[in-house]
């Protein structure tokens, strides 16, 4: 049976998301089965560029205004410099013929990586299914993660 890998993407940073997707793609290349769980700020990675659903409540509206999400909008965890760092990193990646995060997301999904979004943080932040990119296959909670993680030897929190 194929070895199992689970990755929790908690952070909404470009660099951390790149690390997560490199590992996921590499793991599939090693014939492993990969599930990525997106929670908290990590939901930004799998959000569409534009919010589709109506946001209820002033605090959620503010949160979604300040934290708009979408893979192309993620800041760097260090040296972001108001987005300049993130743009420079993308330019360096392009020059080095590295795939962009958006390309890696689509590649991972086509290779069979499963994307699971955490319903608790979605509810708290006012994010609906239609706000997430179509690559997301399932919405679930902690039990689903633990169930899958208990089958795997490699379980990462990024």
């Amino acid at each position: 049976m194929a070895e199992k890998v689970t990755i929790i993407v908690f952070s909404g940073n470009l660099d951390k998301a790149l690390a997560a997707f490199s590992l996921a793609i590499g793991a599939v290349a090693m014939e492993m089965k990969v599930t990525i769980f997106f929670t908290f700020w990590g939901l930004s990675v799998i959000r569409k560029d534009k919010k589709v659903s109506r946001t209820r409540g002033i605090m959620r509206k503010m949160l979604n205004l300040l934290n708009r999400g979408g893979a192309r909008r993620l800041p760097l965890s260090r040296l972001n410099m108001g987005g300049l760092g993130s743009s420079m990193m993308k330019k360096l990646m392009e020059d080095s013929k590295m795939p962009s995060l958006e390309e890696m997301i689509s590649m991972a999904q086509k290779m069979g990586v499963e994307f699971v979004a955490c319903t608790t943080t979605m509810g708290m932040m006012g994010i609906s299914r239609e706000d997430l990119i179509p690559e997301v296959g399932r919405l679930a909670g902690v039990a689903t993660y633990l169930g899958e993680a208990s089958e795997g030897k490699i379980n990462l929190f990024i």
Binding site: S22, I25, G26, V28, A29, M30, S96, K97, M107, M111
Partner: peptide, 13 residues
């Protein structure tokens, strides 16, 4: 040539 990890192993597969 010119490709970085994990692309070479992904392409090899």
């Amino acid at each position: 040539l010119g490709l970085y990890c994990p692309m070479p192993i992904a392409k090899t597969r």
